[in-house]
């Protein structure tokens, strides 16, 4: 059996008449990067807030590392909310120390760890600056550091790359992968599908307050494999047969879906007989396709 850092069962959250989470079940394997996807208003933020104990669910059970989730666990969770910021008038170092101490770190330990991180990001000179004098990207870096400073077992990132330029975004991405390699579990919510493909091991798709898809990214991709090929031919014309169906035709470029009674090799040979093939590609389902398809099917 797999080891889960979070196991949530039948989580329900209602705001008046509005149902934000309707009997949600999630299992987050330890040491994974877990992508939480879904359209706006699907309930992702509510779920993340519940995991952070910012709000309490109306019913349901949450197990954190084999024990029921409790207030003391905040010290083992780090949260980077989508709506984030820092006290503008406070000095960087002072503020980082304050936030680290709120997470339960001891002053001296917090200061030592902070200095290491500041050195790593080469921003020691910012220690005595006020946040309002930093650029948005700089402030985001500080924010990232204070989120992970207390070495939590679970990190929850809501749109972590927003506000970063491509260079800094890749610095942060590498740090996230480093954290994962050191055993931290990461919940990752974003609208940028390409970054999901790149770093997530597991994904969970939430729509209309329900989970509609959950599992490892490869499993889901295989499941959504719809046996489609992109074929470009030199001349001639292809038409539907009992073995395949033309989904889309653009001049000499065809999107063709195979029937169950034929495999790739036979299909290739079938077309070669008719015409000369310029390119032959198997189309794999992208997370974006899966996302759009599942949400539309709902």
């Amino acid at each position: 059996m797999k080891d889960y850092i979070i196991k949530g069962e039948n989580i329900v959250k209602q705001y008046g008449k509005h149902i934000a989470l309707n009997n949600i079940n999630i299992s987050i394997p330890k040491g994974s990067i877990y992508g939480l996807l879904g359209p706006n208003g699907a309930g992702k933020t509510t779920l993340m807030r519940i995991l952070n104990q910012i709000i309490m669910p109306d019913s349901g059970k949450i197990i954190f590392d084999k024990k029921p989730l409790q207030k003391k666990h905040v010290a083992e969770i780090g949260y980077l909310p989508e709506e984030r910021g820092l006290y503008k008038k406070m000095k960087v170092g002072e503020q980082a120390l304050y936030l680290a101490q709120l997470k339960g770190m001891h002053y001296t330990q917090a200061k030592k760890t902070l200095l290491t991180w500041f050195e790593k990001f080469n921003i020691l000179g910012w220690w005595d600056k006020k946040i309002e004098n930093l650029s948005k990207g700089m402030a985001q870096k500080i924010q990232f550091i204070v989120t992970i400073i207390h070495k939590p077992k679970l990190l929850i990132f809501d749109e972590p790359f927003s506000g970063f330029d491509p260079i800094n975004a890749s610095v942060i991405k590498n740090e996230i992968i480093n954290l994962k390699n050191n055993g931290t579990t990461i919940i990752f919510s974003t609208h940028r599908m390409e970054s999901v493909e790149e770093i997530c091991d597991y994904i969970c798709l939430v729509n209309n307050a329900k989970t509609i898809l959950e599992g490892s990214l490869t499993d889901i991709k295989n499941k959504y494999e719809n046996n489609t090929y992109e074929v470009v031919i030199n001349n001639g014309l292809l038409t539907d047969t009992q073995y395949y169906k033309i989904l889309e035709k653009n001049r000499n470029k065809y999107n063709i879906q195979l029937s169950d009674n034929i495999d790739q090799k036979a299909f290739f040979e079938l077309i070669t007989k008719e015409t000369e093939i310029l390119s032959f590609n198997k189309k794999t389902a992208t997370v974006e396709d899966i996302f759009l398809k599942s949400v539309r099917n709902e």
């Binding site: 807030r49 952070n52 104990q53 910012i54 905040v74 969770i77 949260y79 980077l80 909310p81 709506e83 984030r84 910021g85 820092l86 006290y87 503008k88 936030l99 709120l102 997470k103 339960g104 924010q143 204070v146 989120t147």
Partner: peptide, 15 residues
């Protein structure tokens, strides 16, 4: 101030 600076959610994930 805590609301407009958007620091509130960061803090109440700790307290």
């Amino acid at each position: 101030e805590e609301k407009t600076n958007r620091i509130i959610e960061v803090i109440i994930s700790s307290v």
